[in-house]
Amino acid sequence: MSDILEMLESLKPECDFTNCENYIEEGYLDSFDIVLLTSMLEDKYGIKIDALDILPENYSNVDAIASLVVKSGGTV
């Protein structure tokens, strides 16, 4: 979890990801941020995230992102 938070903070240093319920609805992450985060997760965990899983709801908070990593074969 802390690795994911570090990635988010490096992506958007100006955002406080620990005190946000929904990164998408709050405007913390847009579609290009999702592309970047996908690339960072794939590199970090050695996984391939299925294109059909690259949906806003799977990036809405740190738990959802961790679940996506696990679903894609990674270990958080």
């Binding site: 490096s10 992506l11 592309v35 970047l36």
Partner: peptide
């Protein structure tokens, strides 16, 4: 946008 973030986007896209 932050330059670092934009440069990673360059590689990915």
């Amino acid at each position: 946008f932050p330059a670092k973030q934009t440069m990673r986007l360059k590689k990915v896209m």
